[in-house]
């Protein structure tokens, strides 16, 4: 395969809850290459959310190392992590997390604002991504005026606008009905086929099966890591 996008070595995360230390992630070694479509699975308490936060540079590991797109990020400061999130990662959340008072266009522009991209270029790039997800005609609508599926497509456009090395989706279909879930998954598949590296965290088996590779976590360790044998184009 191509370049390595994600490489973790003995990644650990411990929380201190009162007198007790919770070992949420207990040493994960994982390598994901450019162009992969990986589903991280696991029951609640398996440590997959904690793992995802570290992969997404929202959290720093207690121990172990993490390279993102060739850069060692596990030792970076908070502000440096903010820059990495801004430039190398696109987030898609279960609850969309769009700014309710801003238009779809402004929502998509947001990462570019923090990247310091000028107004004209920003609008062009945001418009292009909204067109890509099929929302060119709804750019001036605000999230409350849109359906769940449309909102999640805005979020996908927002995640893509910085041309990130990694698109990280946390339960992207968790708040959607099955039809719109399917639409979003088709969208993600199409993006992956165009070369986008995608990591999606889910606990739904049929969603995970859309990906090419599944990583199962249990009790903070990798339980299974395998390629999907049959790749279906529809769920």
């Amino acid at each position: 395969m191509n370049d390595v996008i994600i490489r973790t070595e003995g990644l650990q995360k411990h929380y201190v809850l009162g007198a007790e230390t919770v070992r949420a992630v207990r040493g994960v070694d994982l390598t994901i290459h450019s162009g992969e479509f990986v589903a991280i699975m696991g029951p609640s308490g398996s440590g997959k959310s904690t793992f995802m936060n570290m992969i997404g540079c929202l959290d720093t590991p207690t121990a172990g190392k993490y390279w993102l797109d060739g850069q060692l990020v596990s030792t970076l400061s908070e502000d440096e992590l903010a820059r990495v999130r801004n430039q190398a990662i696109g987030f898609v959340f279960q609850t969309f997390n769009l700014l309710p008072r801003a238009t779809a266009l402004h929502n998509v522009e947001l990462p570019l604002i923090y990247a310091g991209v000028g107004g004209k270029e920003r609008r062009e790039r945001a418009t292009e991504k909204l067109r890509l997800v099929g929302l060119a005609d709804r750019m001036d609508h605000k999230p409350p005026e849109m359906s769940g599926g449309q909102r999640q497509r805005v979020a996908v456009a927002r995640a893509l606008v910085n041309e990130p090395a990694l698109l990280l989706a946390d339960e992207p279909t968790g708040n959607l009905d099955s039809t719109t879930s399917e639409e979003i998954m088709v969208q993600l598949r199409a993006l992956n086929e165009a070369g986008q590296t995608i990591v999606i965290v889910t606990h739904e088996r049929d969603i995970a099966e859309v990906a090419r590779r599944q990583v199962h976590l249990r009790d903070g360790l990798i339980e299974r890591d395998f390629l999907n044998s049959t790749v279906e184009t529809t769920v």
């Binding site: 929202l58 502000d79 999130r85 430039q87 997390n97 990462p111 923090y114």
Partner: peptide
Amino acid sequence: TREIGVRKALGATRRT
């Protein structure tokens, strides 16, 4: 709070 979380996830630093 949520808005601040979104902004931070998308790359806003503390200072911003």
